[in-house]
Design a protein around this nucleic acid. Structure first.
Length: 909
RNA sequence: GGGCGGUUAGCUCAGUUGGCUAGAGCGCGUCGUUGACAUCGACGAGGUCACAGGUUCAAGUCCUGUACCGCCCA
């Protein structure tokens, strides 16, 4: 029994068993008494998601020509872990656009991909299954991780080591699980994604197109391989690209260390360098200072002797050396940073690579070729202490060695001068890494971009950026590029680089004779398919071949999202229909990666922009205005928010922020969205319950209302066209809540039920319905569930459009059939007048619906004549029989002032 | 260090090419409601538009500088 309403049957909240009137089957209008008092958001969302599927709301016509198509290059989310509210924020921006464009008659292509390859997935697999991939491990058919662990008797903290193929299989298991969760969330949000265009960046189509891209770049001479120092992450043991590097402010220390100056006799002179990386002393191959630095001018051209290792290294001038930094003179190592790499190249210095790919010090012998030492015995004794150590312990060993006077290159006592000086300085990290990047000499594949930065900037200028200032970030990044794009990664789960190398008699790969896959082989895995012209039994044998073990940078594949969706090379028709695309929506944090690489690929392959527009969504900040990130632990997952407020309210929140601006996760805004949904539900019920004989819109107030409506349609349309949906929302909402619900409906309450004015009643009801009909369509992209719900009650049957999302976007032209009002400001005059009456009632503490014995409006002539044709409605809404005027002088605060004489209050029952 | 964005009511934000009296929602105060809606309605209070100069008949809006916040890059 419901205390509020009285009977079990009539209270929706009390009875989960009660069903919503079944109305859509044959577009039959409903009985309003059947509608529950409250709108159950969660239940109706489910209904409408199914219904949209049935109706194929999101489907595109694959045969539509390019000029009728609107193509969205939607971002494939990284499927590792969970979606957070930031994803929802920006994906909603795309769907607003998709739904709007569809209503304006475009054949909208809104595909979805899943970015599943790459490190995040590998890391997740490692953590989830507690496994590690290694080469030269046997493949296990139908691997059951738990069973295998038990069989091997592995303890909880021991990783199971598996074959690369097994590892890739587990990656697929994980990503498929995540994809289902993501898809459910997107459906719940009501995203009108066309799932027939679904892809994953690891699937055969993506692999084929990524490899095709490589073939094309190779043919055009845009890729090359090079053995050279490259940024390297010692934990993931892979090369990384400039775009994946970030500076982090870290603590370090300057160590002042004395070097000797080599003379034919004994070293007598000395100087002191400052370094934050003493552990690289054994890798010191040179010394440099600024050419104008008087302190060191005499040293240039001579050689220095390193302490501890007694290596003779050249001293040379370089304008890159900063006299202000440290002691002004510094050691060049292979390799401490990018400038070391540059000096090494310029000066043709020795290569003494002491750090291995796993981040541990390699074994070397001083006194051998390339490792000359004035005292090899002592050098080796010192070096052996560090072999096999990681950087931090190598560093502390080195500091101890430098405290030992025996290691001095000059005989002046301990090389280490004073205690190390603590500093804070920026250190380069792989964005996903936990240890600083190192420079290791490895062989990598690169895409040539440094020679094309001007062209890239020109391409960027052919694209409209929303907001425009984001273009600057792209240009700054492009101008500051300093290495080509390193596209090879020494990882497992990704698209293989389709290349093989002939092996010579010593089984050495001949890298300069790389064998590139042929187009008909794609996609291909060179580790399991033989090179063209070879057979599998020649793999790994003298005179045979070996497959390239590396995979592509994950951006190499995802930067082809337009080509993948448009099936480049597989389906020329789709390529013509979908490429170049209309808009790329994305976050501004990946301008230098996803946007940059996509523009680069499109330029190199097709000499065109990949899309005409790029829309940059902001971030979601927590209530303290901090960016949400997993490491900060302030991430909000959307499920709870959706359960509480519903998808429409969350979409409302997202739609209320313009592109490029960051949004606070503010519960107040979800609440407002929720209230809007309720208001639409109630206003819809009220409006559609008004009935009358069919008749034209003739009444002045109604005509004036339609004129206002027209203006809202114009602004909302214009705003959506400029991707300024927040303006469209704001205008529509202001009109619906203020003009329509609070004023127009109130003004019409009497006339829309009047028995003695059939013509006025018909006009009122027709206008109410028209207003609601238009408003629902204006709201449809933003709050699609409630808009369709209300639409379905009557308009579906009336228009023959089963869903508001299949209806046409309202246009000014459509409303032009309705005549203009006689007095342009009739509607706003009526609103002002009714406000004045409310104010008078409010100030005298009288209820708003109290009848009035007399109602006098103070106004000037203009004000009086503005109300001339709508007086009856205003009087009725005010509760008076008639209105009389006295002259007054309006001010900024008022246009009309009401003098009222209320009737007796009705008796309370 | 270079670049970009921001600073408007207690809070979150609008404010279009300079133009009547700077707006909205939330919050706050007062009042009201048995017929769409208490997830409600009405009315009200609340702002030196960060600061300092300048251009203009007119500046929140344009220009210069400063401060603070945030972001991107080195």
């Amino acid at each position: 029994m419901c205390l509020e309403i009285g009977t079990v049957e009539s209270c929706y909240q009390c009875t989960s068993g009660r069903e919503w009137p079944n109305r859509n089957e044959e577009l039959k209008s409903i009985e309003f008494s059947d509608l529950p008092k409250r709108f159950d958001v969660n239940e109706r969302e489910l209904h409408w998601r199914d219904r949209w599927n049935e109706l194929g709301v999101a489907n595109r016509d694959p045969n539509a020509p390019r000029e009728n198509s609107f193509v969205i290059d939607s971002p494939p989310p990284t499927v590792s872990g969970s979606l957070h509210i930031g994803h929802i924020f920006s994906y909603t921006h795309q769907d607003l656009l998709a739904r709007y464009k569809r209503m304006t008659g475009w054949n909208v292509a809104y595909p979805m991909g899943w970015d599943d390859n790459g490190l995040p997935t590998e890391r997740r697999v490692q953590n989830y299954f507690f496994v590690r991939a290694e080469r030269n491990v046997t493949y296990i058919e139908n691997l059951d991780v738990e069973a295998k662990r038990a069989e091997l008797g592995l303890k909880k903290n021991q990783e199971l080591v598996i074959n690369r193929e097994n590892f890739i299989e587990l990656c697929r298991v994980i990503t498929e699980m995540d994809e289902i969760v993501f898809k459910d969330m997107f459906n719940r949000m009501g995203y009108s994604i066309d799932w027939s265009d679904e892809y994953t960046t690891i699937d055969a189509k993506s692999r084929r197109i990524a490899q095709r891209s490589f073939l094309d770049l190779h043919e055009k001479g845009h890729v090359y391989q090079l053995e050279s120092p490259t940024m390297w992450d010692v934990d993931f043991q892979t090369a990384v690209a400039q775009a994946e590097v970030e500076d982090r402010e870290k603590g370090g220390a300057y160590h002042d260390i004395e070097f000797g100056v080599f003379e034919e006799e004994a070293p007598v002179k000395s100087f002191v360098i400052s370094t934050t990386r003493p552990e690289l002393l054994a890798a010191c191959v040179g010394i440099t200072a600024h050419p104008d630095d008087e302190r060191f001018k005499g040293l240039f051209g001579k050689h220095a002797v390193t302490p501890g290792f007694f290596a003779k290294v050249p001293i040379f001038p370089s304008s890159e050396a900063d006299p202000e930094k440290g002691t002004g003179i510094l050691m060049v190592c292979t390799f401490g940073d990018q400038t070391d790499v540059a000096w090494w190249h310029e000066q043709g210095l020795e290569l003494r690579q002491i750090l291995g790919r796993n981040g541990r010090i390699l074994d070397h012998k001083f006194g051998e070729d390339g490792w000359e030492s004035q005292n090899p015995e002592k050098a080796n004794e010192n070096y052996q202490e560090m072999v096999g150590k990681r950087i931090p312990s190598a560093k502390s060993i080195m500091v101890d060695l430098m405290r030992d006077p025996e290691n001095s290159a000059t005989g002046n006592g301990a090389p280490l001068q004073d205690e190390p000086k603590q500093i804070q300085h920026p250190v380069r990290y792989f964005e996903k890494g936990d240890n600083p990047l190192e420079y290791l000499t490895t062989r990598q594949w690169f895409v040539k971009l440094l020679d094309k930065t001007d062209q890239m900037i020109d391409m960027g200028r052919k694209i409209d950026w929303h907001p425009d200032f984001m273009r600057k970030r792209f240009e700054n990044w492009t101008e500051n590029l300093n290495v080509d794009w390193c596209i090879s990664r020494q990882r497992y789960f990704g698209v293989p680089i389709p290349v093989w190398y002939p092996l010579d008699e010593q089984l050495e790969p001949q890298y300069d004779q790389a064998i590139i896959a042929t187009a008909d082989m794609l996609p291909v895995d060179p580790e399991s398919t033989a090179a063209p012209g070879y057979s599998e039994h020649q793999r790994g044998v003298a005179g045979g071949f070996s497959g390239e073990p590396d995979i592509f940078d994950t951006w190499f594949t995802s930067s082809l999202s337009p080509q993948t969706v448009a099936r480049w090379g597989d389906d020329d028709d789709q390529m013509d229909t979908l490429f170049p695309m209309d808009v790329r929506p994305q976050g501004h944090d990946i301008i230098r990666t996803w946007a940059f690489y996509t523009i680069a690929k499109s330029m190199l392959h097709h000499e065109t922009v990949p899309w005409r527009n790029i829309n940059l969504s902001g971030w979601v900040l927590d209530p303290d205005r901090k960016k949400m990130s997993k490491s900060k632990g302030n991430v909000v997952t959307p499920v709870d928010t959706l359960d509480r407020f519903g998808a429409d309210a969350v979409r409302y929140w997202s739609a209320s922020f313009k592109l490029g601006s960051d949004a606070a996760h503010d519960e107040a805004i979800f609440k407002i969205g929720g209230k809007l949904v309720t208001k639409l539900y109630n206003a819809g019920k009220f409006v559609l319950a008004q009935t009358a004989e069919d008749g034209p819109i003739t009444n002045e107030l109604d005509l004036a209302f339609v004129a206002e409506l027209k203006e809202v349609v114009r602004i909302a349309t214009e705003s959506f066209e400029k991707f300024e949906y927040s303006v469209a929302l704001q205008e529509t909402e202001k009109f619906f809540w203020g003009a329509f619900a609070d004023n127009y409906i109130e003004l019409l309450k009497r006339r829309s039920r009047s028995e003695d004015d059939p013509e006025g009643r018909a006009s009122a009801v027709a206008t109410l319905r028209l207003g609601l009909n238009v408003v629902l369509r204006l709201f449809a992209p933003i709050v699609p569930t409630i808009a369709d719900e209300v639409w379905s009650w009557v308009f579906a049957e009336e228009t023959g459009e089963p869903s508001v999302h299949k209806a046409a976007w309202p246009t000014v032209a459509e409303l032009d059939a309705i005549p203009s009002p006689e007095i342009a400001g009739s509607f706003s005059a009526a609103c002002d007048a009714i406000s004045a009456i409310r104010k008078a009632k409010s100030e005298s503490g009288v209820s708003l619906n109290r009848e009035l014995l007399s109602l006098v409006l103070e106004a000037d002539d203009e004000g009086e004549s503005g109300l001339r044709l709508v007086l009856d409605d205003v009087a009725a809404a005010g509760g008076a029989e008639a209105i009389s005027f006295v002259s007054g002088t309006p001010s900024g605060d008022w246009r009309y002032k009401a003098q009222i004489e209320p009737a007796e209050a009705p008796e309370k029952k």
